[in-house]
């Protein structure tokens, strides 16, 4: 899932779509990406986190 392809760089499973327009993404949503593609893997990780949400990190006593 994660790992260092080489010692100087850590490559995430999460795909960079920040340069794509929303219109492109919505259009592309008509097609389901194959499970073994990078996008398919990325979307599985994204939705997997929805199925196992962490609790909000709450409770810092900021005032002494």
């Amino acid at each position: 899932m994660n790992g260092a392809e080489e010692t100087t760089e850590w490559r995430s499973a999460m795909i960079d779509v920040s340069e794509l327009s929303l219109a492109e993404l919505v259009e592309a949503a008509r097609d389901t990406p194959a499970a073994d593609t990078a996008l398919g893997h990325c979307l599985r990780r994204l939705t997997g986190e929805l199925d196992h949400p962490g609790e909000p990190i709450a409770g810092f006593n900021s005032a002494l």
């Binding site: 779509v17 920040s18 794509l20 929303l22 993404l25 919505v26 949503a29």
Partner: peptide, 23 residues
């Protein structure tokens, strides 16, 4: 940038269920 990607991918997955109408 990665958090913008996250939001865009969430919207993409919503569109995959609802279709493009709400967008």
């Amino acid at each position: 940038r990665s958090q913008l990607s996250r939001h865009l991918l969430l919207l993409r997955e919503i569109a995959a269920i609802t279709g493009p109408g709400p967008f």
